[in-house]
């Protein structure tokens, strides 16, 4: 049984269909890349899986429909990293990561108490994995873009959920931090977790993902291994680009080189 099974997903927002009949699955230990041009509906798919949007079709986690699951239980099954970075208050990195333990918190009156022992371990290991342990007393607002992205990823890892949904976690990061974050997601899969990651960088998608789902205008275009999906024809069809493709050390790279047709509006 796959970890997550999405079948016939439909999302309509304000009378406009954003996603139509999308189906795919994520297995345990699998890093799945979701790619497609701007406006393809990638973020919408992620939000629908996270139950942040009303949707048609079925989304099953280990065979159970996610929408029927109590919010609290669902919170420990999937962890969501949103695209925007809206942390409002200058809380410390430690507190930020600690928020990932919210699903395991007791009743509200225990809120004043500190995190429990198991929580502390999860928080520390998440921070060490993402290399933000030394930043733990710093304020989130004082971090650089790369540091903040890693801290937010640590928050997601601290949930210790079997499924991670990451919406463009490497956008706005420099190449070094992009590689670092992708390696982290890769290693997160090794413990049997499944990761769905939305990406724009096709080389990162090709190098790190086990499988890719390519979509355009709300519909599935192709799914399969990176080499199956990232074909010249698919790239021209969905992105409207011609790319330089090749292999280095046994891993594929894709560098968009020029537009293959006049830009769509």
């Amino acid at each position: 049984m796959s970890l997550l099974q999405v079948s016939g997903l439909d999302v309509v927002l304000g009378g406009k269909p954003l996603v139509r009949g999308l189906s795919f699955a994520i297995g345990e230990g699998e890093l799945l890349g979701l790619i497609g041009p701007n406006g393809a509906g990638k973020s919408t798919v992620v939000k629908a899986i996270a139950q942040l949007l009303d949707h048609g079709g079925e989304i099953r986690f280990r065979g159970r429909p996610l929408s029927a699951m109590p919010a609290r239980e669902r919170a420990s099954c999937l962890a969501y990293l949103s695209q925007e970075d809206p942390v409002q208050w200058p809380i410390s990195v430690r507190d930020l990561v600690g928020l990932g333990r919210h699903p395991y918190r007791g009743s509200w009156w225990r809120g004043a108490g500190g995190p429990r022992k198991g929580d502390l371990e999860a928080i520390e290991s998440a921070m060490r994995l993402t290399d933000v342990w030394r930043l733990r007393e710093r304020r989130v607002t004082q971090l650089s873009g790369g540091e903040r992205a890693r801290a937010r990823l640590a928050r997601v890892l601290a949930v210790e959920a079997p499924l991670i949904l990451a919406d463009e976690p490497v956008a706005a990061l420099d190449p070094r931090h992009q590689l670092q974050v992708m390696r982290l997601l890769r290693s997160a899969c090794q413990s049997g977790r499944g990761v769905l990651v939305v990406l724009h960088d096709l080389t990162l998608a090709s190098r790190f993902c086990d499988r890719l789902v390519m979509m355009d205008r709300g519909e599935l275009i192709a799914t399969g291994t990176p080499s199956e999906v990232l074909t010249a024809e698919n790239l021209a069809r969905t992105y409207g680009v011609r790319a330089v493709m090749g292999e280095h050390d046994g891993q594929g790279y894709v560098v968009p080189w020029e537009t293959s047709e006049p830009m769509r509006s």
């Binding site: 942040l52 669902r74 990293l81 949103s82 809206p86 942390v87 919210h102």
Partner: peptide, 22 residues
């Protein structure tokens, strides 16, 4: 009663909801 939920809301409404905040 809202204390813990308000803490989580610092992450934004989307992430807070996926963490079980109603």
């Amino acid at each position: 009663m809202t204390g813990p939920s308000l803490d989580v809301l610092a992450l934004g409404e989307g992430e807070a909801r996926t963490l079980g905040v109603d």
